[in-house]
Design a protein around this nucleic acid. Structure first.
Length: 559
RNA sequence: UGGGGUAUAGCCAAGUGGUAAGGCAGCGGUUUCUGGUACCGCCAUUCCCAGGUUCGAAUCCUGGUACCCCAGCCA
């Protein structure tokens, strides 16, 4: 499977191509700027594919820059995880990893520059007072009483803020723009706030930290970023982004372009909410296979290719409020694994079948393809003995009309082996089915039986050779399409209680050799991935990535 | 009742004055030792609504409507 990250056109790619053709842009430089305050999720994957994809398409580079301006929320552990996720997705950033904190000295010098230009001032108002002075959406704000301090005083105050002379919240540095602007972001935005916190990169060097607005565009400029792609909610910030670039002696003029963020059915993509799920122990960490994080999806069995394909499928636009059908994600992974996952048989709801005309010492081994359409995947060995396991769902005592599987007196093909007939149903005292007695038609290996058609094919595992496995059946974490649409209902109310069910099954012998993160199609069931944590501990655990399409279930539903 | 945005099928999405791509989902069929896959076919007389311009409009103009974002010393 190839990645089409180069081929899906969108309004940003079109625009850049026009700029290049017009000669207004030479080399394209983009950046992916996560804040290290959580793990990357599928929404970030969209941004990563866009930013790295554009750089690749136009022969430029994409920087990885941590937007680390808020030490209170950030951690080194997140930085490590984010780097690993970007690499796993298959992208390589240009040069070293960057940090906004690399530019703190320059940013500080530029803050002093603004002060000297009478374009910034130190404000003593409290946070609440600043809010009051700011006005509302429909009323203009009022200037702070501290707005007209001298440059000398401002410079002195800022320096003393920097060295820790003041308490947190006591003062801020603000840009002097327009308190009456209809765009609230221009009503003297905060440039620096005091934080007596140790920073994961700069340690205790700084007692003040720049705001996002003061750091982002200038960081772009320093790095020579040409196109700064971000989500729609930053659109109102663009005038401010441009204001800094116009009022500071920056070395380049990046441009901000906004696109709509991803919303996915049945999931939440908000770092805050994902962190809540982790912190409250609702899921088993950031990489729980139910999480829409890159690492969770990886553990679930999604491939990097499938995630990139998904991002290509959904496109990039400015249309808001869109909600992508999670079936698209399922399609992306199924189509990858259909081609690339070796096949295996695994019984999840074991029902014992005794093959009455197979001798006790029968020991036959079939050599079957690792993949029905890929010879390069070789063959695997499939032993057959007198007792086998089949899936309980593949037997019905009183089958409906279109049931092609096993039933009393009926025949079915054991996948890759013989046709068997169910002769007897053995029940226990309370009437539960204990085992089936079946007979093998030995004249059906690799050919259809004489004079009749056997339509059904079921999967099975030789009981004597079965490998016990734990199978984790994952389903959507939420049971409603839009868990966080409702403002009055907590999204946790919509949790799906059955998002995980654990089952003990029997796998064919080839599964004993599985390595962490190996992916298989369990034939007729779905795609599964060897859990990397469990396997590292020597436990055989397979995570269900996604089920196979099930038209039988659909038929049953219709009645 | 401020400012900034967005509206094309159930969902995502092309389209930029020449007569509505593609994908997902769905529905029918063929093939099949996976009720999977693959393959074939169907699925918008119409582009939020109403007017207007034009030989011709999803595209241009006018006026509406709906929805999203912004009042963090978060990003």
């Amino acid at each position: 499977m190839t990645t089409e990250s180069n081929s899906a056109p969108n309004f940003i790619r079109n625009q850049i191509r026009e700029e290049i053709e017009a000669g207004s842009v030479d080399t394209v430089v983009t950046r992916f700027p996560p804040e290290p305050n959580g793990f990357l999720h599928i929404g970030h994957a969209k941004s990563i594919c866009l930013n790295f994809g554009i750089a690749e398409q136009f022969g430029g580079g994409c920087n990885l820059r941590f937007d680390d301006t808020n030490p209170a929320k950030e951690e080194q552990a997140y930085i490590d995880a984010i780097k690993a996720d970007v690499e796993w997705l298959g992208f390589q950033w240009a040069g070293n990893v960057r940090y906004a904190s690399d530019y703190f000295d320059q940013l500080y010098a530029w803050a002093q520059h603004l002060i000297r230009e009478d374009k910034a001032y130190v404000d003593d108002l409290s946070a609440e007072e600043i809010r009051e002075y700011r006005g509302t959406l429909t009323e203009p704000g009022r200037p702070s009483p501290y707005r007209d301090r001298s440059a000398e005083e401002n410079l002195d105050l800022l320096e003393r803020m920097r060295t820790g002379e003041f308490a947190e919240g006591e003062k801020v540095l603000r840009a002097k723009i327009d308190m009456a602007s209809p765009n609230i972001n221009l009503r003297d935005p905060v440039l620096y706030r005091i934080r007596h916190a140790s920073h994961h990169q700069t340690g205790d060097k700084w007692k003040i930290y720049p705001s996002y607005d003061f750091a982002h565009g200038q960081s772009d400029a320093i790095e020579g970023v040409t196109h700064s792609l971000c989500t729609l909610e930053f659109e109102d910030h663009r005038p401010l982004y441009d204001w800094f670039l116009e009022n500071l002696p920056v070395p380049a003029r990046p441009r901000q372009i906004e696109f709509a963020r991803l919303n996915l059915d049945y999931t939440v993509t908000s770092k805050r909410k994902l962190k809540l799920l982790v912190d409250q122990g609702i899921v088993d960490g950031w990489d729980d296979p139910r999480m829409p994080t890159i690492s969770g999806m990886r553990r679930r069995g999604y491939t990097a290719n499938s995630i990139r394909k998904f991002c290509d499928m959904i496109g990039v636009t400015r249309a808001e409020g869109g909600m992508v059908d999670i079936a698209m994600l399922y399609h992306a992974i199924r189509s990858d694994l259909e081609d690339n996952a070796p096949r295996a048989m695994c019984v999840l709801k074991p029902l014992k079948v005794v093959l009455t005309n197979v001798p006790e010492d029968h020991d036959e081994v079939f050599e079957v393809p690792g993949h029905p359409a890929r010879d390069d995947m070789g063959v695997r060995k499939l032993p057959l003995s007198r007792e086998i396991w089949i899936d309980a769902d593949d037997f019905m005592e009183e089958p409906p009309k279109k049931f092609f599987r096993l039933a009393p007196g009926k025949e079915v093909r054991l996948r890759n082996a013989y046709v068997i007939r169910c002769d007897e149903v053995i029940k226990n005292a309370s009437g539960d089915i204990e085992e089936l007695r079946c007979s093998v038609d030995f004249d059906t290996l690799g050919k259809n039986p004489e004079g009749r058609k056997v339509k059904g094919v079921i999967h099975w595992v030789s009981a004597a050779h079965a490998v016990p496995v734990e199978v984790r059946l994952y389903d959507n974490l939420f049971q409603v399409e839009a868990p966080d649409r409702d403002r009055d209902v907590d999204f946790l109310e919509h949790l799906n209680e059955d998002s995980l069910s654990v089952v003990e099954g029997y796998g064919e012998p080839s599964l004993a050799e599985a390595n962490p993160e190996d992916r298989f199609q369990f034939e007729r069931v779905g795609y599964f991935c060897a859990d990397r944590h469990a396997l590292a501990e020597g436990k055989r655990v397979f995570n269900r990535t996604v089920g196979l399409k099930d038209t039988w279930a659909k038929i049953q539903k219709k009645g």
